[in-house]
Simulated assay, not measured.
Amino acid sequence: MHHVVAKLDALDPEAGAAIRVISRFDELVEGHAGLGPVLAAVATLSGSPARLVDERFGVALRADLDGRVERDAGPIDPRWIGAPLIPGGLPALWLERVGRHSLIEAMVLDRAAFAAREVLHRTRDASGRSAGPFSDDPAAVEVLLDSGASESDRLCAARLLHLPEGATLRAVAAADGAGQIVAAARSDTDCTARARRWEGLGRTGIGPAVPLLDLPRSWDLARTALRFAAEDTDEDPGPGIVLFEELGTLALLADALDPASPPADVRALEKAARSGPWVLRTLAEFTSHTSLRLAAAALYVHHSTLKGRITAIEQDLGFPVHDPQGRLRLQLALAARRLLLHPPAPSAVRQAGRSGWGTPLPGGSG
Rank of each mutant, 00 (worst) to 15 (best):
V5M: 05
L8D: 04
E14W: 10
A17C: 03
A18C: 09
I22H: 07
S23N: 06
G31S: 15
L39C: 00
A40Q: 07
A43M: 01
S46I: 03
G58T: 01
R68C: 04
D72F: 06
G74D: 10
I76L: 14
D77M: 10
W80K: 09
P84S: 01
G88N: 09
A92V: 05
V98Y: 11
V98A: 11
R100I: 11
D125H: 13
L144M: 15
D146Q: 10
E151V: 11
A158Q: 12
R159Y: 06
E165D: 12
R170W: 06
Q180P: 03
A184F: 15
A185T: 15
S187E: 15
T192D: 14
T192Q: 13
G200F: 03
R203M: 10
T204V: 13
S218H: 04
D232S: 10
D234T: 07
L243G: 03
G248T: 01
L252N: 05
D265C: 01
A268D: 03
V279H: 00
R281I: 02
T287W: 09
T290P: 08
R293M: 05
A297M: 08
H302F: 05
S304H: 14
I310P: 00
I310W: 00
I310M: 06
T311Q: 12
D316F: 10
D316E: 11
F319W: 12
Q325V: 07
G326C: 07
R327D: 02
R329T: 06
L339N: 12
L339R: 13
A345E: 14
A352V: 03
A352Y: 02
G353R: 04
